[in-house]
């Protein structure tokens, strides 16, 4: 009951402080694990290089991939603030779901990390704030 209340209260009394400041922004990267170590970190679901104006307009009505990407951003922020099995599983589930069967051989594991991008003075700065435990491929 208390949990339900804590979920509903921010809806009934919202803060509306959109973009009060621009906080470090998460990127989810994943890697296959070989011999206990992650191999090659790759960005998970990287954004497209270009989106045409027509595609932008169409996405007003149909935008599931983008909205799931935004949920992934929320999950990454939650994990850094307060890691829970739910948030970690949701990220793992999406990474494993996107992998083709031949990308993960039997017994091989997958790992993800959260890289937070920010501006440090005039330079772009990246910091790894979370590295997940490896999970076996196929364990969706």
């Amino acid at each position: 009951m208390l949990r339900t209340l804590s979920l509903i209260l921010p809806v009934l009394v919202p803060s509306w402080r959109f973009f009060k400041s621009v906080e470090p922004s998460p990127r989810v990267q994943w890697a296959l694990v070989a011999d206990g170590s992650p191999t090659d970190w790759r960005e998970f679901r990287p954004g497209p290089a270009v989106v045409t104006p027509f595609e932008m307009l169409m996405r007003l009505f149909w935008n599931p991939a983008r909205n799931d990407a935004l949920f992934l951003v929320s999950l990454a922020e939650r994990i850094v603030q307060n890691p829970t099995p739910h948030s970690i599983n949701e990220v793992n589930k999406r990474i494993l779901a996107d992998l083709a069967p031949d990308q993960v051989s039997t017994g091989q594991s997958v790992q993800f990390r959260l890289v937070f991008v920010s501006r440090n003075g005039e330079a772009r700065s990246e910091e790894v704030l979370y590295v997940s435990e490896p999970v076996k491929g196929g364990a969706k």
């Binding site: 973009f19 400041s21 621009v22 922004s25 998460p26 990127r27 954004g47 497209p48 290089a49 270009v50 989106v51 932008m56 996405r59 983008r66 990407a69 935004l70 951003v73 991008v117 920010s118 501006r119 772009r124």
Partner: peptide, 18 residues
């Protein structure tokens, strides 16, 4: 500067060109 940061490094721009 804040809007520039949104475009520069936030997760929000829909494409890299933006």
């Amino acid at each position: 500067r804040a809007l520039a940061d949104v475009f520069a490094f936030s997760a929000y721009p829909v494409s890299e060109r933006l």
